[in-house]
Design a protein around this nucleic acid. Sequence first.
DNA 1: CGGCTAGTTGACCAGCTTCAAGTATTGTGG
DNA 2: CCACAATACTTGAAGCTGGTCAACTAGCCG
Lengths: 240, 240
Amino acid sequence: MSDRFVRKLRHGAALSAEDEGVLSRMAEPIQRVGARQDIMREGEQAHSLTLILQGWACRYRDLPDGRRQIIAFFLPGDLCEPFGILPEFLDYSLGTITPVEFVLVPSSTILSATRASSSIERALWWDLLVASSLLHERAVSLGRRTALERLGHLFCELHARLDLVGLADRSGFVLPVTQRDLADALGISDVHLNRSLQALRATGLITLSDRYLMIHDLIGLQHAALFDAAFLHLRLAAKD
Amino acid sequence: MSDRFVRKLRHGAALSAEDEGVLSRMAEPIQRVGARQDIMREGEQAHSLTLILQGWACRYRDLPDGRRQIIAFFLPGDLCEPFGILPEFLDYSLGTITPVEFVLVPSSTILSATRASSSIERALWWDLLVASSLLHERAVSLGRRTALERLGHLFCELHARLDLVGLADRSGFVLPVTQRDLADALGISDVHLNRSLQALRATGLITLSDRYLMIHDLIGLQHAALFDAAFLHLRLAAKD
DNA sequence: CGGCTAGTTGACCAGCTTCAAGTATTGTGG
DNA sequence: CCACAATACTTGAAGCTGGTCAACTAGCCG
């Protein structure tokens, strides 16, 4: 199962073999870029949607004095913009964390797919709904959760999202981001992130080493982080 | 010009008289609800989209221990959900701040409008793009801006959005929210919000009294708040 | 008039930031 | 394959931003 995008969209609507073929054919030509590169930069015009096939990326904003906020992490199978429209000028940058394989999908390709199949249309809307719920959750975290809760919540969120595309199992997942990335996503300093991470490790709920996050007690972690997976809007029982 | 919704959408696409007629006819039957009421509550199923015609509302989340985060303010002319899909279960509540006039628009009504006119479709996608950019901005504010910057930035944002629907002028706008609402939107305590507000007043950039925010120096305020209106994605010169 | 909500102020304290230094770990060119 | 540089992580100490608690004032509505 190499196509994470199709795999994810199955959670949003029942796709026919034909639908899946259409979606898979979007995934070319594959482009590759190294770690810590920008795919698109704030202020540029976007001509296509970016679909991540492999590796991790993020949407981020830099402030003039060096502060940085990571607005969203993008995982394999993620579409980085809403599928129905492209902004004239980007108001954020899209950068890679690991080496990334991606594909630039023209709006017209996506739109004709939605017109050809209402299942594809529903699946894409579901995907957009989840992306927007993710932003709501991030606002709640940044606004009202403590550093420790934010961290636990992010781990739960990433676990749930990676699970959707078969990149996580019960015991954990590969977490290729630096502590500075986590700090910039959670709106805290890297020093404090380090200490929060140690506090979370001290609870015994997780272990993080060699870029692998081991979750010893998923339910316990979700509870400690006030995590509720409802925002994933998983209605259908999807099979692998 | 009573229809704020149409007025706003003109900024997203050139609408024909017929398009505007279709959009206006969505705005019935009008429902009314008092201040400080919930239109929809977290966990409920939504059957229609909510379109605000008059008054202020907000999307918010309550945490189990009483903390509250306001995720977005909704102004006259705002559609409170993405137009293409309704979640099976809401992951947030929709509450009013002032008395509100709104209308519940069935998805099918919106979808048939988008199919009837590609201008309407483009305008709605533009609206969705702006809503999502607003969420990005909120994440940046909550994560990386100081209390004072957040406050100034929110004032600039509200000014720009109200201006789109003719509810603001150069000198200011009616701001019917309490200090507690502002605090819950900006992720700070109400006490600290009060002090930040006083600090902002002390700069001479604004005055806030009797629910009216007077902006004495819009450019100065935007500068102090690191505000850039790019996220409104105003491509077309729209006329009133 | 009385009770509620909104706003204001003071005092104290906690969470988090900043600065600084030191230790691992990773990557790179000779 | 080593030496060195750069990046990532860790720790300590000091200080600031913003939180909490509490009291008081002002306005509003029944």
